[in-house]
C-alpha cells in the first residue's frame, strides 16, 4: 500500500503549472473514475478495519484538498484571463464616436418662469393662471385705473374687433379674478402672457410675459412685502446682489415701490444696459389699494395685502446677457439649443 502524500504532492505540483485546459485533465488523472486517488480507495477492501478507518480518512482529506485546489486554480486563471481580455478591449471615448442622441431644450422664457415660480412655491405661494382676453373692467377699472387716466398712456392696448374685449396689458387682472373666486388668506403667483400695442424692437415686444403676485390677509404689511421680495431677488440673483426699494406709483397699489438691482452687466459702474445709472429696474410692487379691495367687495379695514409684477423677458435677458428681445421669439434652433 503506497502512501497518499506523495501522490497528492505530485498532483498539486502539476496543478501549479497548469493552464486552463490542463486542469480538467489533472482532475481526471487523480480524481476521475480511474484516477490515482480513486484507485487507492478501491484497494481499501484489502486492509484491516483499523487500517481502513485511518487510511480512508487520509484519502478523503486528500480528495477534498485536491478538489479545492482545482477550483481555486480555475478561478485564478479565469480571473486573470478576464483582466487580460478587458485590457485589450479599450474603447475610444471621443464624443465624435458617440451615438448622436439629440437633447431637447426648454425655451429660456419657460425656463425663467419656472425658476421664478419655483422660488415663490418654496415660499408658500400657489400658482394660478389667468385669461388673456379681458374686459376693460378687469384690466383697468377694477384696478383703479379709470377711463382717461394718464396711467393708461403707458399701456397701449389691443382691442378686439366686434366686442368690448381687449388683450390684457398686464397680469394684474388675475388679482381681481382670484379675489372674486377666493376668500382671504391668499398667497398666489400668476405667470402669463401680456400684450402691448407697440412696435417690436430690441427692448419692446407686442407680446411678452409677466409674473403677478398677490398676498392678502389680516395682517399683511409693507414689511412683509419687502422681506418676501428681497428673499426672492436674493434667491434668483444670489446673496451678494444689491437691491433697493424706491417709491413709485401704480394705480392699484398704495404705497407703491419699484425694486432695482445693481446692474448685473457692469456691477453698478454704469453701462448701456442700465443707461449709466448702475441700477436695473426689475419689478413693481405695493400694498393693494383700498379701491381695488372695494371692487371685489373685500373689507379693506379687515384685510391688507400686497401685490407685485415683473417682466419675465427682462430677467431672462439680464441673466443670460441677451441684448435683443426679438432673439427670444425667433426660435432659431441654434439659439434654442443654447439653453
Amino acid at each position: 500500500m503506497s502512501k497518499i502524500e506523495p501522490i497528492l504532492d505530485e498532483a498539486l505540483l502539476k496543478l501549479q503549472n497548469a493552464g486552463l485546459n490542463d486542469i480538467e485533465t489533472i482532475r481526471i488523472e487523480y480524481l476521475g473514475k480511474k484516477g490515482k486517488i480513486t484507485e487507492m480507495l478501491k484497494n481499501l477492501s484489502e486492509l484491516s478495519i483499523e487500517e481502513k478507518k485511518q487510511f480512508g480518512a487520509e484519502i478523503n482529506t486528500a480528495k477534498t484538498k485536491l478538489n479545492e485546489a482545482v477550483e481555486n486554480k480555475k478561478k485564478e486563471i479565469t480571473a486573470r484571463l478576464l483582466e487580460e481580455k478587458m485590457k485589450n478591449e479599450k474603447i475610444d471615448i471621443s464624443p465624435a464616436f458617440a451615438f448622436p442622441f439629440s437633447k431637447g431644450h426648454k425655451h429660456i422664457i419657460t425656463k425663467t418662469i419656472r425658476e421664478m415660480t419655483d422660488i415663490f412655491v418654496s415660499l408658500g405661494f400657489d400658482v394660478a393662471e389667468g385669461k388673456e382676453i379681458e374686459t376693460d373692467w378687469y384690466n383697468f377699472e377694477a384696478l383703479n385705473i379709470p377711463k382717461d387716466h394718464p396711467a393708461r398712456d403707458t399701456q397701449d392696448t389691443f382691442y378686439l374687433e366686434g366686442s368690448q374685449n381687449l388683450l390684457r396689458t398686464h397680469t394684474s387682472p388675475a388679482q381681481i379674478h382670484i379675489m372674486e373666486q377666493t376668500k382671504p388668506p391668499i398667497r398666489v403667483v400668476v405667470p402669463g402672457r401680456v400684450y402691448r400695442n407697440e412696435a417690436t424692437d430690441a427692448t419692446h415686444s407686442a407680446t411678452f410675459h409677466q409674473i403677478e403676485g398677490l398676498v392678502v390677509g389680516e395682517d399683511i404689511t409693507f414689511a412683509e412685502l419687502k422681506g418676501t421680495l428681497s428673499l426672492f431677488i436674493h434667491r434668483l440673483f444670489g446673496q451678494e446682489i444689491d437691491l433697493r426699494f424706491r417709491p413709485s406709483h401704480f394705480q392699484f397699489t398704495e404705497p407703491s415701490a419699484e425694486v432695482d438691482i445693481k446692474c448685473v452687466i457692469c456691477g453698478g459702474k454704469g453701462c448701456r444696459v442700465c443707461k449709466q445709472s448702475g441700477w436695473l429696474e426689475v419689478l413693481g410692487c405695493g400694498m393693494v389699494h383700498p379701491n381695488v379691495f372695494k371692487s371685489v367687495n373685500y373689507d379693506s379695514e379687515k384685510y391688507t395685502g400686497y401685490a407685485f409684477g415683473m417682466g419675465v423677458e427682462r430677467f431672462a435677458m439680464f441673466k443670460n446677457g441677451i441684448d435683443d428681445m426679438r432673439v427670444l421669439y425667433e426660435n432659431d434652433i441654434r439659439v434654442l439649443k443654447q439653453f
Binding site: G124, Q181, T182, P184, K226, G227, F245, E254, H289
Partner: peptide, 29 residues
C-alpha cells in the same frame, strides 16, 4: 392710504424692516 404712503416715502423705504413670514396659504385651484 395716500397719507400713509407719504409717511413711508418721506421717512424712507429703507426704514421699513424686512419681514418674511409665510402666514397664509391659498386653497388649491
Amino acid at each position: 392710504i395716500d397719507l400713509i404712503e407719504e409717511i413711508a416715502r418721506i421717512d424712507g423705504y429703507d426704514n421699513i424692516p424686512l419681514l418674511a413670514e409665510n402666514k397664509v396659504v391659498l386653497a388649491d385651484k
